[in-house]
Design a protein around this nucleic acid. Structure first.
Lengths: 242, 242
DNA sequence: TTAATAGTGTCTGTAAGACACTATACG
DNA sequence: CGTATAGTGTCTTACAGACACTATTAA
């Protein structure tokens, strides 16, 4: 805030503030993002990120949680770490109607029962990210999605966010599948195991073993995230080059 | 943006949008931040980060550049990389007057001739960051400063931002002094040289050697940033533990 | 049995940290 | 000469990647 105001605070310019959400999950071994179909102009009929206006007495992340619940039926609960702020997009012409500044967020969720349409009957769908990036999205949502994807890929290296894509208990194979999907690689199971266990971000569940998948295989030890909060991966788990 | 609006766009809630700036530089081997003194309520007389209202037809980073120039006389020019968005702060009660959402930025500058008061005669000063963090700052500026500091410390590991604190030509000793100041460590000159040169973020200036400092010593090779854009440091330059 | 996944062991190359040593300036 | 900084070389340790090998399940 400027100590010597350029504008009287009661004559401030007319801004609208919104939130947009990049909601990632993993489905069929691939990274997906939640898109909604716009029902009204501008960009009616086009795919868009879920989001909406921040209410006058509502915090910004509260607005993000509320909009996500309203449009997709997803409840992130009180868990602070699955929803993080990405960046703010405020080009003067990003919305043809008026000046809108949007605070974008990234949410990571375990695979959903199924994305249902919002309480207001808007269509919500789960789309593979590469498909979504090839679509013509409303507003500057393609750029926001791109930025969100970059962020998740980066954070996978140094933060324990991978467990957010998993249910409370998971195997190291499940966790590796997250890395494989987000980075589009195939990590060596042996080296993955060594690095993840050394980082301490997961703790084995005493006695719990996973039933082998349909294709057979030895049952795997079950793990839980060591902490409910995000933890640094130390040393960082670097993404394979090329 | 919600496809089914909770609010008619022409009845949007009354928000003001501002920018705040965390401007870092290095002075006397220590990291400093630019603070201004507030001339009016609320928080009159208290130190604050420079910033101000975004104008109706102005982009957000354009507003940040303009406010910085107005309040401290610093011109970042067209260089995109010295000014980066940090995060957005929008608690409903962060400004007692009205609902204000502020987009905070971080700027890195080479040591200034001297921070002059703004064109509107507001006092601007350069304060060591640890001192600034102990002060009672206006609004939530202490948290913003804290977040900005964390960001710069992190980015020093994997982005070539250190050169932004230096004049166009510098020695490896100068660059190491940046790391020492921001991380509050004393890096080994030999290992620092090896890692920085291996990363390729700097290029030697043919024939140019620095005159030894007052205390003597062999003249050092001069370098320039290899690219005007920010480049990743590969492999990352990890901060010493503890 | 085979196929598939879980999990262990080991070798090799790269790179970080510690630090000795040389080079070139000022006084 | 001593002192201070620039710059090189080298040793040790840690860890990542590659990959061989064993373990335990389903079909």
């Amino acid at each position: 805030m400027s100590p010597t105001l350029d504008y009287d605070p009661h004559e401030f310019p007319p801004f609208a503030v919104t939130v947009d959400l990049v909601v990632f999950t993993i489905r069929d071994e691939r990274l997906h993002v939640v898109l909604v179909e716009r029902g009204s102009e501008p960009f009616a009929g086009r795919s868009a990120l879920p989001g909406g206006f921040v209410r006058p007495d509502e915090g910004i992340d509260a607005a993000a949680r509320r909009e996500l619940a309203e449009e997709t039926g997803l409840d992130l609960g009180r868990d602070a770490a699955t929803l993080t702020q990405l960046a703010t997009y405020g080009d003067p012409d990003r919305d043809p109607r008026m000046r809108v500044v949007s605070v974008a967020h990234v949410a990571l969720v375990a695979d959903l029962p199924d994305p249902r349409g919002g309480s207001d009957a808007t269509a919500a769908e789960l789309v593979p990210v590469d498909t979504a990036l090839r679509r013509r999205l409303a507003f500057d949502h393609r750029r926001i999605l791109r930025d969100g994807l970059d962020r998740v890929r980066d954070q996978l290296e140094y933060l324990s966010i991978a467990t957010r894509f998993c249910p409370p208990e998971f195997t190291l194979g499940d966790l590796r599948a997250v890395y494989d999907a987000v980075w589009d690689v195939e990590l060596d199971p042996a080296n993955f195991r060594r690095k993840i266990l050394a980082s301490g971000i997961v703790t084995p569940v005493a006695g719990a073993r996973a039933t082998p998948s349909a294709s057979g295989g030895r049952p795997a030890q079950r793990y839980r995230a060591t902490s409910t909060a995000l933890a640094p991966i130390e040393p960082p788990f670097r993404r394979p080059t090329a």
